[in-house]
Design a protein around this nucleic acid. Structure first.
Lengths: 193, 193
DNA sequence: ATCTTTAGGAACCGATTGGTACAATACACG
DNA sequence: CGTGTATTGTACCAATCGGTTCCTAAAGAT
């Protein structure tokens, strides 16, 4: 019909995700995004409406990617004990820091930032964190030690663990001493063991 | 010598703290601050140099106020068991949310935001979180159940608890369902009991 | 009363913010 | 081979950003 777009919206969102991840929502300027995405204003606004809409799309993508990866890990049948899967998630978070990634979690940064005054962003953040929480709960059910707990206690433990995860990744972004993060993870391991 | 200033720098910083607390560092504009502090540009820049310097002063004030209040609570001799003091801190954090304060923790927001690219801010954040962590560790020593732990294990537990606290308050800012926060706190209680 | 020193306030600064308008462009289809 | 249609890129927009300048008002010191 007409001139086709020369960029793939999916990879554009992927690139936008990287920009938001490092700079945060408010910290990422239009030039930052255009630069990182490799397109111009006209294309961006035509394809993604505006900055906030783009960010919401990025958050959805983050959910489809990072959150789902976490849930998959939490359901990994290759690790028989669900508690071990949870620990894999925590040690993975610590591993990221030692690998030099100190951007933390996009979701957690969004939680601490714009979600406080923007309902739509807050809703997406809540939903994604809920998804991860449910993954943790399912993993707990697949752990002999925690399968014995009653539903309420197990649910509360899942809530605590998701909160622990948010804290860990938030502190990672603040460049807290890595040993502190490692120790926290270790202590989670002791608790779950 | 000369004309004295008509405002108290201490209360000005206090007011600035409220503005930064609700809007975050990047989200708080100069007009926001001038409005909230009740003074004009000339006075602000004369007294506090610039926005970032003001924010650093605010963070110090936050440490002197909120963090020290936490540490005091963690050392409260009126509560014999240190674990109970820690629980008082966590239930207090939850209480804030049910009381309608969803601003979370200024320190945690700073951790998720500017501390990622600003060394000075990151340093103050780390220091304050470290202070709180040490308070938790001391409280653990004053808990019969945890006094028995070896130093390493107790220190790791303190690291985990401060991370838990950061996560809790970050999620509060994202307006996560309050029951989730309450459950997380409950689960911490189970763990420490 | 006068001098000195500083606070206060408003006008102003260039840079940057997110967003828009529009003309040039390039492809698909008749 | 036009022709229509959507994309693209650029120029531009008002508003706001954090910060500076400069003049006046005010008050303690002498």
């Amino acid at each position: 019909m007409a001139r086709p777009r020369t960029f793939d919206p999916d990879v554009a969102i992927e690139k936008a995700m990287q920009v938001f991840w490092t700079h945060g929502y408010e910290g990422a300027s239009l030039p930052d995004l255009l630069d990182g995405m490799g397109l111009t204003r006209g294309s961006l606004y035509k394809a993604f409406t505006d900055k906030k809409t783009l960010f919401l799309k990025v958050l959805e993508r983050y959910e489809d990617m990072a959150v789902q990866a976490g849930v998959t890990m939490l359901n990994d049948p290759g690790i028989p004990d669900g508690a071990d899967r949870i620990m894999a998630m925590f040690t993975g978070a610590y591993q990221r820091v030692t690998d030099g990634d100190q951007r933390g979690c996009l979701l957690c940064s969004a939680a601490a930032g714009p979600s406080n005054y923007d309902d739509e962003i807050a809703a997406v953040v809540s939903k994604s964190l809920g998804t991860l929480r449910d993954g943790i709960e399912a993993a707990l059910r697949a752990s002999p030690k925690h399968a014995a707990l009653d539903d309420a206690a197990r649910g509360e433990l899942a809530d605590m663990l998701i909160s622990q995860y948010v804290g860990l990744r938030t502190m990672a972004r603040a460049r807290i001493a890595p040993e502190m993060l490692r120790n926290a993870v270790r202590s989670v391991g002791v608790m779950l063991a």
